[in-house]
Nucleic acid binder design. Structure first.
Lengths: 184, 184
DNA sequence: TCGTTTCGCTACTGACGGTATCGAAACCGA
DNA sequence: TCGGTTTCGATACCGTCAGTAGCGAAACGA
């Protein structure tokens, strides 16, 4: 049932090394200084190889984030618990080295790049929107609002101060949102 | 008491035209394509003149935003009313042509530019933080949290969809925040 | 008219995203 | 061992854009 391996030189597992090198470079130098040349050098790969696998820097970062984030850990039994879990999960992820800076950087790039915005909306936001809609039993509009508030708040703090949000504010965020989504 | 006019060619009111040209260019072409050459051309001014008055593109955009936003219209009598007023005010401003894109663009630039982040924090956020602290009678931490939630949410929606937040979601944001800040 | 300051213009540098080309490496099947 | 196929590496290159240098001219006050 496994498709026959195509002939030619195989695509060895370069993605993992590229993703790691991308996050490390972004963590060290920031999003704008993390050039494709530097990422390629850090991964021990030619720059042309990057462009053979990803159409643009934004697409590489987006895929890197998809890989770094993984699925949202919700179980679908208790709505309030799932919301708190999701908020603490994404807070922790954004606090990981390079993830927050990469997130904010690609998000900014997307503001004036409709193609990248499409990539971001479909590859990043869409899976989490669907998962949260099922787990929380909320409408699409309310889940999108939930994502806007959580991610927007965390990224704004990250962009303004350069550091992730402190725990007491995360707790306040959880209480505020939880109260809003359970008061009806 | 007015300081004697210095000799030499006077600095005529170029700022207003430059700010208008900046917002118009950003509105037409987006943040990244709004190059300093294009802004200068739209303002009928040489590019070198821009760099004589602002040290970088980010600083120009930041000053342009300060000019476009103006003071926050709070009166300091009713806390809930002032919060709703402030939220609707910044929502409307971000929805104005070019303001939202400029805001998101300079915010992204600032993520990896500590100098620009300093400019943004002091020239943009600081005055509003002080005004809101006085009007709302809240601590610095809670006002900064308030700003993170409001601006972050609006910018995230703007960046993800390319359009400002619809009115029903703005109302939900006001209710959620108002409830959170008056429940103790 | 002279001194001072700002402006416009042209040309330039350096960095970066992205592309083109060509030869070599890595695999499969025969 | 030997072609066929595909991917990779290296180098060179283009276009764009932020930011700078230098010079002459314009706009004032005295």
């Amino acid at each position: 049932m496994t498709p026959a391996r195509p002939p030619g030189r195989p695509r060895v597992g370069i993605d993992a090394e590229v993703f790691a090198a991308t996050l490390a470079t972004v963590h060290d130098l920031g999003y704008t200084r993390a050039t494709m040349d530097r990422i390629a050098a850090a991964a021990g790969v030619a720059k042309t190889t990057l462009y053979r696998r990803w159409p643009s820097k934004g697409a590489l970062i987006a895929d890197c984030l998809v890989d770094a984030l993984g699925p949202v850990p919700v179980r679908g039994v208790d709505r309030g618990e799932d919301m708190a879990t999701a908020i603490r999960w994404i807070t922790g992820k954004i606090g990981e080295p390079g993830v927050g800076a990469a997130f904010a950087g690609v998000f900014v790039d997307a503001v004036n790049d409709s193609a990248l915005r499409e990539v971001l909306a479909t590859r990043l936001q869409e899976p989490y929107r669907v998962a949260l809609q099922e787990a929380l039993g909320e409408s699409e509009q309310r889940v999108l609002f939930f994502i806007d508030v959580v991610v927007g708040t965390l990224l704004h703090r990250m962009g303004m101060t350069g550091a992730p949000m402190v725990d007491s504010d995360v707790t306040a965020l959880i209480e505020m949102i939880g109260h809003h989504f359970t008061s009806d």
